[in-house]
Design a protein around this nucleic acid. Sequence first.
DNA 1: TTGAAAGCGCTAACAT
DNA 2: ATGTTAGCGCTTTCAA
Lengths: 344, 344
Amino acid sequence: MSRAEGTVPARPTLEEVAAAAGVSRATVSRVVNGSPKVSPQVLDAVNAAIDRLGYVPNRAARSLAARHTMAIALVVPEDAHRVFGDPYFADVVQGISDRLDDSEYVLNLQLTHPSSPSEKTRSYLRGGNVDGAIVVSHHTGDHFLTGLDPDLPVVFGGRPMLGDASPERPPYYVDADNLGGARAATQHLVDLGRTRIATIPGPQDMPAALDREAGWREVMAAAGLPDHRVARGDFTLAGGLRAGLQLLREHPDLDAIFVASDLMARGALLALEQAGLRVPQDVAVVGFDNSLHAAQGDLRLTTIDQHTVEMGQVMADKLLRLLAGEEVEHQTVLATTLVVRESA
Amino acid sequence: MSRAEGTVPARPTLEEVAAAAGVSRATVSRVVNGSPKVSPQVLDAVNAAIDRLGYVPNRAARSLAARHTMAIALVVPEDAHRVFGDPYFADVVQGISDRLDDSEYVLNLQLTHPSSPSEKTRSYLRGGNVDGAIVVSHHTGDHFLTGLDPDLPVVFGGRPMLGDASPERPPYYVDADNLGGARAATQHLVDLGRTRIATIPGPQDMPAALDREAGWREVMAAAGLPDHRVARGDFTLAGGLRAGLQLLREHPDLDAIFVASDLMARGALLALEQAGLRVPQDVAVVGFDNSLHAAQGDLRLTTIDQHTVEMGQVMADKLLRLLAGEEVEHQTVLATTLVVRESA
DNA sequence: TTGAAAGCGCTAACAT
DNA sequence: ATGTTAGCGCTTTCAA
């Protein structure tokens, strides 16, 4: 380790600051930790010494003495591709990072290959390396919790599939109101006077996809409209294109589509385009996510904003509160917003 | 902090392991750290005790005593969108994570908004919170280093723009052989007998984009072919489509395109398709990256594999060696590979 | 090869 | 409001 040697002025310790300020180490510690029990004069003196010496507390020493790590794990139990290539994930991470920025905590990234049993990650979490964890995945269930230190606070991004975890310990999670968003999207189409409204839902193993499909069905039923125009996608562009093509083939009379993601909606648009159909005149399209895909491109997508960055912030905030010993609600569902643009 | 209380068996300390194994703490420490100066019998006894008690070393205590943090920072000085939505980044992170998985180090994610001066990140890096850093960005220069602890090892992903850093301290970086890859791609087109070869290069503020463009020009010149068929893209699908359309408009005679990224190539393919051109019969297309975009879709793309995951692994490996006190070369350029599929 | 002892830099009672 | 005193759990000379 080459850092040990050299003649650069070593990073000052709390002790040196104490000496410089003419107080005890405890007092410096109090100042550093924002204790109210410090007189203004002393506070100023200590802060001056800190600035002058360029003091930065040693994280390891602090963790050791205070018995917390000031680190939280960001666990991503999916293939990096699936997750990193997903704007949803990007936004969530951004939000988490935002919220953590004005805290003392740092983020430890735990990418766990879906292939391997991620035993390493679990032992990492159990090993007292972090004070809490945020688990972000579209698929993971709360079984991820079993075997973990029950005292390790964990917040999920998206409603986890209810699994084998003890029912008396409901998981903490924050999710978007997928149901409400889907309802709003479909209702918008109904209000537009469309009657042959199709949908391109997402995979059936994802809670969010299921909720969005259910919302569409609800509104269709309430409006007395038929709900047989369905072609499932897989949340990819190609999948959206494929589903769009299928819809056009099987239900050429459709006059609107509610697509469960913007990316798939882009694919559907491609299908519509090559069929010579005009959007929104011939077919109105509403997406979901309000991701980059919605705004970019020639035709700007009408979609449902699920406020993803904010979701990340709320996840982090929830965990931070948990760590502070506060009572927080187990479930937080963030409202979604209809964003009307050009496609419907 | 609720974790302090409770009746769960507390995590054992090194001291308890020592007692259980009937040896001193120093000996347990030696075993844990793989010191060779331990007799086989003692080693077995200690390991047995470790297993039996489920001992996991305390990271903070270790860091404090050993004066290193066992953490490395992953610095991403770009907007989360740009980077996380980019398969290149996903792969690099995967590779880094892979390599780190069989080390003691953990990854600390530092997302720094490109807007704010990221002063916070710099002070984080300067504050002795990590033993080293990996900086991954398509744009960042080595000026990122200035003001940092000169003893903090930093490895860049991608060749950094040479900036104001002292020339006697060349940055460490690992990059793909963009020039060679572009040459191979173009040469492949030439070998196919194409003579009116266009290119869709990337933005001019990105070293990788510049290198790829230069490679194309070199081979075109060497083959005595004209190099005026150029329409620049921005590494997005829409940009590729736009550039493809422009190319078709300005140079309708083209018989091949070297596109500087797979994603843009997909866009170009869309343009070709709507013009009624067949690929590869009428126009041969070679992409770059061998990302997800290359293999997915109806037509599988011929492209240049830049072995991104491996690049991430090498970045991590280089940093780990640096931390181990080894001499490593400043620059590592990984060879690229031509992957011939359907589009050329 | 093993053990004893002295910290690493900080926090947190407990006194005062 | 401030100082004193113990450690937090581990590594690391130095002796044996």
